[in-house]
């Protein structure tokens, strides 16, 4: 009986509390007229950044595509004359993107970065498909100093074997010295 009364009273109390909200102000932000504050590290859509030398950072490793929950990133690797890997095409279908940022987490070269832009509505869905030229920005984004090829051991033009960070000069196999 007590329990019955308690549950009944709890309903009444709830109704009363909700009723009191008649006099509270609405929390809604009237979005298109009132813009919310988006922090610089806010995760909206992605961009492809360039390394400090001004060359594209993406090495087409495919990790972003693998991490992407709606599978909306597709790319094809190519090898450039100078030995660098690069994406021959890099396509993201923003009509599928859920802006989860997992591609940014997965990116080992800091190429993919999310920016505070999410206003991408289009009347034609086809316009939501972004190619590399739409995504590439002329800058390093949030990470100013990182350059993958200065860390990785692969030789490219202008950075031979042994010239990466923390690398010893190449071993002379024919040397008898220890």
């Amino acid at each position: 009986m007590m329990q019955l009364w308690e549950s009944f009273w709890s309903q009444i109390r709830t109704i009363w509390r909700v009723l009191k909200h008649t006099f509270t102000k609405a929390e809604t932000v009237q979005y298109p007229e009132q813009k919310p504050y988006l922090a610089p590290r806010y995760r909206g859509r992605i961009v492809l950044t360039k390394d400090p030398d001004g060359d594209e950072r993406c090495v087409a490793c495919n990790l972003c595509a693998a991490a992407c929950p709606p599978d909306c990133i597709a790319l094809q690797q190519g090898t450039r004359e100078d030995g660098r890997w690069y994406p021959e095409f890099f396509r993201i279908n923003f009509s599928r993107c859920i802006m989860c940022g997992l591609c940014e987490e997965a990116c080992p070269t800091n190429a993919i970065q999310l920016i505070p832009d999410f206003e991408m509505c289009e009347y034609d869905r086809q316009n939501m498909v972004y190619e590399k030229e739409h995504l590439m920005i002329d800058g390093t984004g949030k990470y100013h100093d990182y350059n993958f090829y200065r860390v990785a051991g692969m030789a490219i033009e202008g950075k031979d074997k042994g010239e990466a960070e923390n690398e010893a000069p190449p071993i002379d196999v024919r040397s008898l010295l220890p």
Binding site: D71, C72, A74
Partner: peptide
């Protein structure tokens, strides 16, 4: 099971 890019690989031809 980790096959990627299914919703983007043909998106340049048609987003459908």
């Amino acid at each position: 099971h980790r096959y990627s890019g299914r919703t983007a690989m043909r998106a340049d031809i048609s987003v459908h």
